[in-house]
Computed example of a mutant assay.
Amino acid sequence: MTTYFDDLETRSADEREAAQMEALRAQLRAVQGLRGYRDSLGLIDPSEIDGMADLAVLPVLRKSELGAAQGQSSPFGGFTAKTAGEFAHIFQSPGPIYEPGEISHDWWRVGRFLHAAGIGRGDIVQNCFGYHLTPAGMIFESGARAVQAAVLPAGVGQTELQVRAAADVGTTAYAGTPDYL
């Protein structure tokens, strides 16, 4: 493949790390005022995060801690700057854990992966991930749109209809779990 998804792929390792560290520092500054992050990140000085080795000083938020925080302050546990009604999507993962989502270009950042797999304009992605409660269906749809591929939003189930749809529309790529394929 001779094309790149975007200019980010042609940066040097030093440029990439510098950009990542600046983005991390900006993200830390943005979330330190949020109730959910106050105890764990409130005492961290973002300006002291200089390289990948400094990631070791950042605390890990465990799924059980996130679920407990969301149980006390539904739905996002104080970890978002926006209210639930200000997001385009709200997903539920097992736990339950609630996750916000948006519709902006390649929100879930799967476009780069699909591009690297050779999927792009002219392809039809049969998306067999679920389009309910969990974000998997929307994740792959967002990525397919980012590489200008068409999407057949198939979801799960109805195997005979799925095979027929794949043949009728000319599906060129599959997105879904290996066991469903």
Rank of each mutant, 00 (worst) to 15 (best):
C128Q: 08
K82T: 02
L43C: 07
L28Y: 06
T2R: 14
F79K: 02
A26W: 00
G36E: 01
G157P: 03
P135W: 00
D106M: 02
A117K: 15
G85R: 00
I139A: 07
T10N: 14
D168N: 09
R62H: 12
G67Q: 14
R35I: 05
R29L: 07
S142C: 08
S104R: 10
A26S: 13
M138R: 13
D7S: 14
V156T: 10
A173Y: 04
D39T: 10
A167G: 15
I103C: 05
A19Q: 11
G155C: 04
T172R: 11
V125W: 08
F5N: 00
M21Q: 04
P178T: 12
V31Q: 01
S64G: 10
T159R: 13
P153M: 03
G111A: 07
L61S: 09
P75I: 06
T172A: 09
G71E: 07
I139R: 12
G155D: 08
G130D: 09
E48L: 10
P96I: 04
R29G: 07
L66K: 06
T83G: 13
P96M: 01
A88E: 12
H115M: 05
R25Y: 02
S104M: 04
S47K: 06
H115D: 03
A69S: 14
V151K: 04
L58W: 07
E99I: 11
R38S: 07
E160H: 15
V31T: 11
P100R: 02
G155T: 02
L66V: 15
L66D: 05
A165E: 13
L133Q: 07
H89G: 07
E102D: 13
H105T: 11
A117W: 09
Q148E: 15
H105V: 08
V57H: 14
Q148T: 08
G137K: 03
E17R: 09
L161I: 15
D168I: 10
A81D: 09
R11N: 01
A166C: 10
A88F: 02
F5G: 03
Q27T: 14
A165D: 15
G51S: 13
E65A: 15
Y98S: 02
R121T: 11
S93R: 12
G95C: 03
M21G: 05
G67Y: 02
E86S: 05
T83I: 00
G122W: 02
D45N: 15
V110D: 00
G137T: 08
S93G: 14
I124V: 15
Q20W: 06
M52G: 12
A154W: 07
T172E: 05
I139C: 08
D50W: 13
P75L: 13
A30L: 01
A154Y: 05
G176V: 07
Q162I: 10
R109W: 01
T2W: 12
E48H: 14
E102L: 10
